[in-house]
Amino acid sequence: MSLETRTPVIEARRICKYFGAVTALEDVSLKLYPGEVLGVVGDNGAGKSTLMKILAGLYPPSSGEILVEGKLVRFNSPKDARDMGIEMVYQDLALAGNMRIDENIFLGREWVRRIGPFKFVDNAASLRHAQEHLNKLKIEVKSVRQRVEELSGGQRQAVAIARATAFDAKVVIMDEPTAALAVKEVRKVLDLIKDLKQHGIGVILISHRLDDIFYVCDRVMALFHGRNFAEAPLAETNRNEVIGWIMGNKSPVAQAAKIFDLN
């Protein structure tokens, strides 16, 4: 099946976002297919995180359309996006350190048991399902009862990813998932992304680390000053070209010209 005939699992069309007088995004479009890992690169302030927060329902776009599996959607909150299978792993992880691992994984979607007219949190189910899910992702922790504040950076990242994938996610968006990790933990997170891909989940990876991009991605797109700048399958590009995109140059030659042009 060629890419053209498949329906993107998520698509953004001509998204604009203004914060007051500041234009964060202008006419940005994006497509992601099932089982694809899309790398999104760009300099600080290029609009990567803003675009992802729009796709995850945290910000409403000023204009533009979002389609999930070809259907036009409108997210009023992260809950709407999560209900459609769009999950995001935030750069600061957005975990509650005072709560157990399983409570974080199922935060906002707790396991409940009905007793009469009332619904109560079902801790036994929560602990069991959390352990099963972590096993599936091959993530090891001492106990799912541990509070997240007791975990290492890599384990926290793993918990954040576990939360994003706990319920039939179609798309997982990751904002700099390896930025704060020790070297050996980076590999684990990237392999986790490959696992997600194997399960048919579409992944959008924002990263400054080209090593990450070139290790896991199928396609890479660059934003520059809030606009689509360039895009290519990974096989058809190389590091130097991508570095050029980040700096706003279309080709290595142009990039070199800019660097050496003292005017």
Binding site: A56, L58, P78, D92, A96, N104, L107, G108, R109
Partner: peptide, 11 residues
């Protein structure tokens, strides 16, 4: 614990 975590979890 973390209001941002709560918010993005759909709370």
């Amino acid at each position: 614990g973390n209001p941002q975590a709560a918010r993005v979890s759909g709370i």
